[in-house]
Design a protein around this nucleic acid. Sequence first.
RNA 1: GGAGAGGUGCUCGAGUGGUUGAAGAGGUACGCCUGGAAAGCGUAUAUACUCCUAAAGGGUAUCACGGGUUCGAAUCCCGUCCUCUCCGCCA
Length: 423
Amino acid sequence: MLTLKYIAENSEDVLKRLKKKHFDGEQLISKVLELNAERKKTQYDADSIAAEINKISKEIGSLYKQGKTSEADALKQKTIELKESIKLLEEKQNQIEATLNEILVQIPNLPHESVPEGKLAEDNHVERTGGKIPSLPADALPHWDLAKKYDIIDFETGVKITGAGFPLYKGKCAQLQRALINFFLDNARAAGYMEVQPPYVVNEASAYATGQLPDKECQMYFCQEDNLYLIPTAEVPVTNIYRGMILNENELPIKNVAYSACFRREAGSYGKDVRGLNRLHQFDKVEIVQIQLPEKSYDTLYEMVHYVEGLAEKLELPWRTLRLCGGDMSFTSALTFDIEVYSAAQQRWLEVSSVSNFESYQANRLKCRYRSSDKKIELCHTLNGSALALPRIVAALLENNQTPEGIRIPKALIPYTGFELIN
RNA sequence: GGAGAGGUGCUCGAGUGGUUGAAGAGGUACGCCUGGAAAGCGUAUAUACUCCUAAAGGGUAUCACGGGUUCGAAUCCCGUCCUCUCCGCCA
């Protein structure tokens, strides 16, 4: 969330920038300003009384030591009155802070100045494209038909075991997925990321810190017995490694990569978009996360985007990078680039990565800070991106590389799969 | 799952009701010393909020978390969470 301080000191700027996200913050912001003023006043009053009580308590202590019990008892009476008034103030203070917090989590991050105006996906800017869209014969098959033809993904059995959106990968497709995971992890390691294996289930505090709670509860699978959530992305556990930490400036940037299975309820998405591998309840993803100094975070963002583009390039997939417009960006992001690959039989672009700079928005909830060389403590900037999500990559690979002999594996992957053709 | 022990600062560790934000040690930083280093000596070393135009300097809170007792709680009581040990079970 945004810091109270920033809103209090820059409310005009906040309102102006929220408009780009098509978020009307007038009411919330003015409420924040009002409550903040009240909070300060209440705190000052309560603190003054507490100081008074502390002072008297010490006096009582020394009076007792001197044996002046009657004087001490008289002072006791005074603190009883003070305690009553402080209690009221404290209750008020707690309530103000709770309300303030409720409001703050409803205010999205401010978009970076380079975010294009716009409301819908059509308003996103195409930044770069690469690779070559293959020309497939007219009878080219979408990946769900190829999956059946070669018997490599069994959607029906997935339904039997669990339900829709939980496919069963078989044979060479299972191997291909394992190959992709290793390929992505190895590339990330070569780019300086440290691999971590996080838990796939997180507690409430973690889900809250990265912003899944309180609003997006219904997107996560929840284990009621244990009060734990299945992760929708490795971003959640990996970013939470740094929750509550004060890092030294020289430890930054922190670069982590993690493979994980991801679980998403995807409540409310149906239709042709969800056919085959396009949208699943469980999928595999390799995620890169960086914690960076504020002044360097945008350089880092561009570096991460280029890194992801490089992966698409190595997999010989046609790709394009979009700079998301204000209306299409996520709640918590300041600037997001989506990387899409072209799935030639479906003839559509599929999002395979979303790389974002959250600036200090996420770090503020995480309380992830760093101590600069001049001893000042500031919030870090956090960034993350998929590198990459598997199912749509698999879909594009299957469709784009189909030949009469079978499905061709891109050269860079062959050392990982151990085979050149799915047939 | 059963029984027990415990959670104190960057770390270790003292502290069972009254200047304890917290002894002591270690670590770290700076200074002195040195030709340079080590050792030694000295100094410093939490966070959040808040008061003050700012600095300087105050105030409040925080010894897992939440509540209670008390004029006063790291210290007593209750609840929650977590860790460890033993037993049982088990990949």
